[in-house]
């Protein structure tokens, strides 16, 4: 079964002569449990594609289906619900809520979902342990290193048990050791929990971990490589 399907998706910014075609008739199918990497130069449409799948942006034309639902037809509130329950996000930086501690950041989504305190606490403890942040639960983001912050972000994306996690340049602000650790963590999660990953990057290290590598250029998929 497919987790994500794109049919003839176009995205145009601006109008007339100034129009920029970020995506041109993109067709894509991502199977459940996939570990997919989007690569390509800046402006090739990686982020746009990712944002479309996450419901953060709407296509100009075409259909997008996530978990059997046409998200291109949804209202803002419905999109929020889909993101809350089905999709997790990891961004390149500054993506934690600065006034909340690591644990509170992780529990944030569960609180929105209305999960009871006990269960929340249990889950956040487990997840933070799983990403190797035991003992740092009550620190605020500014008191954590870049790698640790990114692990909190991963924990948060993971904790709501989404079918799909979207990551936009997750290693961009990390040194190579931390980047390697993060990718190992993501692969491990993919193996153990069968979560589908869609990662945009131009980091060679990230590409090397991908099971399927998509190359984008000028808003079109120019290469689709299955690895390992």
């Amino acid at each position: 079964m497919s987790t994500v399907t794109l049919k003839k998706v176009c995205k145009t910014f601006g109008e007339g002569e100034l129009a920029v075609h970020a995506l041109k008739d993109v067709d894509l199918e991502i199977k459940a449990g996939g570990f997919l990497c989007l690569s390509g130069p800046s402006g090739s449409g990686k982020s746009t594609l990712l944002n479309m799948v996450g419901g953060l942006d709407r296509p100009t034309s075409g259909e997008i289906t996530v978990a059997d639902k046409r998200i291109d037809l949804m209202s803002k509130s419905e999109l929020a619900e889909i993101r809350l329950h089905n999709i997790g996000f990891i961004f390149q930086a500054y993506n934690l809520i600065p006034v909340l501690t690591a644990r509170e950041n992780v529990e944030f989504v569960m609180q929105l979902q209305g999960i009871p305190t006990e269960e929340r606490h249990q889950k956040s403890t487990n997840i933070l342990r799983e990403v190797g942040l035991e003992g740092l639960e009550d620190r605020k983001p500014l008191e954590l290193s870049g790698g640790q912050q990114q692990r909190v972000a991963v924990a948060r994306a993971l904790v709501s048990e989404p079918a799909l996690i979207l990551a936009d340049e997750p290693t961009a602000n990390l040194d190579s050791t931390n980047a390697e650790n993060l990718m190992n963590l993501l692969r491990h999660l993919n193996d153990d929990h069968k979560i589908t990953f869609l990662i945009s990057t131009h980091d060679k290290l990230v590409m090397s971990h991908a099971r399927r590598l998509l190359k984008l250029h000028d808003g079109q998929i120019i290469d689709d490589i299955q690895q390992r």
């Binding site: 929020a80 999709i87 996000f89 809520i97 600065p98 944030f108 929105l112």
Partner: peptide, 15 residues
């Protein structure tokens, strides 16, 4: 940025 993040994490606009 933070408010955008809330939305990305699934917070409804009304919240």
């Amino acid at each position: 940025r933070e408010i955008g993040l809330f939305q990305a994490l699934g917070m409804r606009p009304s919240f």
